[in-house]
Design a protein around this nucleic acid. Structure first.
Length: 930
DNA sequence: GTCATCACG
DNA sequence: GACGTACGTGATGACC
């Protein structure tokens, strides 16, 4: 129904509801984890009473409106606005987002707009509804809203159940509703810290307004006032009074990203609502609402006295003995039928190792419902030590691998059957080597990451423990650890069945739990666009690998070994004794005790600390620390790169296959392991040469495309820094521009040193700058560094605001968000002590780093389709860079296509105020491509 | 296994 | 007024 005559709109002041609920109830906590939940409970009860009370009434549209952000346009006018408000109580803060979730669960429109008070949204909606000819009831007792009353707009105090109409307002303010702001402007408001006119309260104000007709008339004709004191006050404080009026005047003309029609009353969806209530563990309310909806009351988890969750009666217990070991094709066929009927299955593979390029399949597990899981052994072996040839033979009674795969392949590739895994990339890569392309997939690890990044890890053991109250069988119990470790194919089949099938069972249970939560926590888009589709892309990159020239590395290793030996002799000579240069403890001992150099600081283990910057300072006084630094550099390059990389060259492909952790970094960045190809040296000339070992095969070239200054560009956008935006749009040297602005040096007189300082500050801002950090980085006194920062904030206003808003948001919600909606939780943000400093800086950095990470993820997801048909393969991602291997002739074409994808990756979801620019290079090796 | 160090963005 | 600080990662060798 389109909103118009005959419609009745209810506007609920959500923030007022929350505070009422909070103060009305004792501090309840959720049993299972101690989460404070009192206000949410009260809030839900109020919503339920509201819904019951209006059943069958004439209300056609309704919205619950909340405040959002601590900084509003009123703070721009008057920085003291609401400045005397107490901090939100610690135990209320985590409940705030839950009240939003509660509103959604009741299927009531939930509205909030960053940087606006609920009152302004309510005012705008009320005005629009009135203009459209409808009726409005505002459920609140806030006197600030009384200015809206009249012409079909009423208020209702939900606590006292008292209507407030024109008479009610007259009674309270002594004037008509349209003059309420005038009275408030004069009387001020100590709660909101609106100054008003000193010495004038509501009574006097009403008297004056009624006499002169309006505030403006009163102020213009203030000379006519007979009482000298009053006259003087009004004349003297005219500006303050006018400011007060602007502060109390509600904004009826906001731009809203929704219409009245969007607020139409909707029936709650029983599953969603009851699911939410069960999650909150509200037993009584769940029952009441289930009755009202005519639905089954949900099972609410119960807890034991230690606070760990145990399953409610409806949960299926874990019974490893019940898992089926599939040993004949008929049994397997039955599983295929069960899966096909259901349309989804949890899958887990067991292999001989963790390297997907080398490991062999040992067995496959399937689960279709809690407790119903099977294990299909295909590669268990026995024999060995006592065997004449030291070889192993397949154990009897297992299905043939080929038969199993032939039967499962159609299921695993069936577009109508969802395959659920925990870290599905691993299983997909294994199965890919057996000719199976697993799709479509869901991944519980990624679901957990999308919902809870920053809160906890996302490995299966941690998730099972936390969400199922179950400790899985540790793999160590099967294969041992250390030197005595065996491979999974040597594990006894019955034992393997209990362990392996349990993993599939757990995965299925986690999936059932997480699936509805994605929506409730509003990360469905993140999961569906940034996580799920990335899995096959990363799998393909990892399997492609990059060609590494062993000879180049080996030669470098040799040269490094010589150099180290030389340096070692020199170092021992300078020190006058032999010691282990690789031992920081011994280095500290030599430098600070034997040689008596100044400035030794002990770390928490009591040993001297000898990091590079300390040694660099000492290097001005003595040759020894300088040589130690040289040694360390060479040692690092040799051990971590030229030696270790050779061990990672795959014997079959001759290439290096890294593994990307999609859930490794809380910000949304990837992490690379085994080996880490995201930290190959580039900054030092010597280290950079290691990149010459990363090569393209004959006839091909490597392409490197990297985003230029992406994090600074995102900062300019999110903090709304016009000067930075303009500089980026004009393609200026951003650090030089910053330097020019800060140090008043014209661009044509810029020196490298001034630019260097500005660059450090630009980066510092992204990291949540501190005077201490900048001072250390630039090696200048702390006071000077602080001066730079102050000037930066002065010259680029908006940065400060961004930082404060971000920290405020984190304190209120417990997380921050990227432009694409990724959540990064900041559980330490309300801690006190040094942890709070860390958390604040991390909170400032996370949306910037995370948005950049989202952008390149979007580019990666789109890339395969964009370069399909071109002779090109995407090989590596290094945070802001993508590396490709392409046929030489196609290089130009691929650069053009890939650049377009990368530069347009934010769109259409986000339209940045600054262009994203991608630089490209090509060459026979990675060093040249840069 | 933890710490210190250092490689990258 | 003191605290103790740049953000995010992974690999290595030393040492317990």
């Amino acid at each position: 129904m389109s909103f118009g005559k005959g419609c009745h709109l209810h506007l609920i002041d959500g923030s007022a509801f929350i505070f009422r609920a909070y103060h009305a109830l004792p501090p309840l906590t959720r049993k299972s984890d101690g989460l404070p939940i009192g206000a949410v409970s009260g809030f839900c009860n109020m919503l339920q009473r509201y819904v019951e009370g209006n059943a069958g009434g004439d209300v056609t549209h309704v919205a619950v409106v909340f405040d959002k952000g601590s900084h509003t346009f009123r703070n721009e006018m008057y920085d003291q606005y609401k400045a005397n408000r107490d901090e939100m109580p610690e135990d209320l803060r985590p409940q705030i987002p839950l009240t939003r979730a509660a509103t959604e669960a009741f299927n009531i429109a939930c509205k909030e707009i960053e940087g606006f008070e609920a009152d302004d949204i309510i005012a705008t909606l009320a005005c629009r509804a009135r203009e459209a000819g409808g009726r409005v009831t505002i459920l609140s007792s806030d006197k600030d809203l009384m200015q809206l009353v009249g012409d079909g707009v009423e208020m209702l105090d939900p606590m006292k159940n008292r209507r407030i109409d024109r008479e009610g307002v007259l009674e309270k303010f002594g004037v008509e509703p349209d003059r309420v702001v005038d009275v408030q402007a004069l009387a001020g408001d100590s709660v909101d810290n609106v100054p008003g006119a000193p010495g004038i309260g509501i009574k006097t104000a009403a008297l004056l307004i009624n006499e002169f007709g309006s505030l403006e008339a009163l102020l213009d004709r203030a000379e006519e006032i007979t009482q000298p004191k009053r006259r003087q006050t009004l004349i003297e404080h005219r500006a303050q009074i006018e400011l007060s009026k602007r502060l109390v005047q509600l904004d009826c003309g906001m731009d809203l990203p929704f219409t009245l029609d969007d607020l139409e009353v909707r029936e709650p969806e029983p599953d969603t609502l009851l699911g939410f209530l069960a999650e909150m563990e509200f037993r009584t309310l769940s029952k009441r609402i289930a009755d009202a909806l005519g639905a089954e009351p949900p099972v609410v988890m119960d807890t034991d006295p230690r606070g760990t969750e145990v399953e409610g009666p409806a949960e299926v217990p874990f019974t490893p003995e019940a898992y089926e070991c599939v040993r004949d094709m008929d049994a397997l066929q039955l599983w295929v039928e069960r899966i096909t009927e259901r349309g989804y299955v949890a899958v887990d593979t067991e292999t001989t190792g963790l390297n997907e390029m080398q490991a062999d399949l040992v067995g496959i597990c399937l689960a279709v419902e809690p407790g119903a899981a099977c294990y299909i052994p295909v590669g268990h072996k026995a024999g060995g030590a006592d065997d004449l040839f030291g070889s192993y033979a397949l154990i009897e009674g297992q299905l043939a691998l080929d038969d199993v795969l032939a039967l499962l392949k159609p299921v695993l590739e069936d577009a109508a059957i969802l395959k659920i895994g925990q870290n599905m990339k691993y299983d997909a890569k294994i199965l890919a080597r057996y000719g199976i392309t697993v799709a479509p997939i869901d991944d519980t690890m990624l679901m957990s990451y999308a919902m809870n990044a920053g809160l906890h890890g996302h490995g299966m053991d941690a998730l099972a423990e936390r969400y199922l109250g179950h400790t899985p069988i540790p793999i160590k119990e099967l294969i041992g650890s250390g030197k005595a470790q065996i491979t999974f194919d040597r594990v006894d089949i019955d034992t393997a069945t209990r362990y392996a099938a349990e993993d599939a069972d757990i995965t299925l249970r986690l999936w059932q739990r997480f699936k509805p939560q994605l929506h409730q926590t509003r990360v469905t888009t993140v999961y569906e666009t940034l996580e799920r589709p990335l899995v096959p892309v990363l799998a393909a990159m990892e399997m492609a690998g990059i060609l590494v020239d062993r000879q180049v590395l080996s030669r470098m290793s040799g040269a490094f070994a010589q150099k180290m030996a030389q340096l070692e002799d020199e170092i021992h000579g300078l020190a006058g004794e032999k010691f282990n240069v690789g031992s920081p403890a011994q280095v500290g001992e030599i430098l600070f005790e034997r040689m008596g150099l100044e400035g030794g600081k002990r770390g928490k283990t009591g040993k001297y600390s000898t990091p590079a910057d300390v040694l660099e300072d000492l290097a001005t006084m003595h040759d020894l620390p300088a040589r130690i630094l040289d040694w360390r550099q060479v040692s690092k390059l040799k051990s971590t790169y030229t030696d270790a990389l050779q061990d990672h060259i795959d014997p079959d492909t001759g290439r290096v296959h890294t593994s990307y952790l999609q859930t490794g970094a809380s910000t949304g960045r990837l992490a690379s392991t085994d080996p880490n190809l995201q930290n190959i040296p580039i900054r030092s000339e010597e280290g950079r040469r290691i990149r010459e070992a990363f090569v393209a095969p004959e006839g091909k070239v490597l392409l490197a495309l990297d985003y230029s200054q992406i994090e600074l560009r995102i900062l300019a956008h999110v903090a709304g820094i016009d000067a930075l935006k303009e500089a980026f749009r004009d393609g200026q040297d951003i650090h030089a521009m910053t330097a020019s602005e800060m140090f008043d040096v014209p661009m044509d007189q810029m020196t490298p040193d001034i630019r260097r300082r500005a660059k450090a500050i630009n980066f510092g801002v992204i990291y949540g700058i501190s005077g201490f950090g900048l001072a250390r980085n630039l090696r200048i006194p702390r006071s000077e560094a602080q001066g730079f920062i102050d000037r930066y904030f002065e010259r680029f206003p908006g940065i400060r605001g961004y930082m404060d808003e971000t920290i405020g948001f984190a304190k209120e919600h417990g997380f921050v968000q990227t432009l694409f909606g990724r959540k990064i939780h900041t559980p330490e943000i309300n801690a006190k002590g040094p942890g709070a400093g860390f958390a604040k800086r991390a909170a400032i950095n996370a949306p910037i780093q995370g948005t950049a990470a989202d952008v390149i993820r979007r580019a990666m997801v789109r890339m395969p389709a964009a370069i399909a048909g071109l002779p090109a393969t995407m090989l590596l991602q290094v945070h802001d860079e993508l590396l490709f291997e392409v046929d030489e002739e196609a290089a130009d074409k691929v650069i053009a296509v890939a650049r377009e994808v990368m530069e347009g990756a934010a769109e259409p979801a986000v339209r940045l105020d600054v262009p994203l620019i991608v630089d490209a290079g090509r060459g026979a090796n990675w060093a040249q491509a840069h």
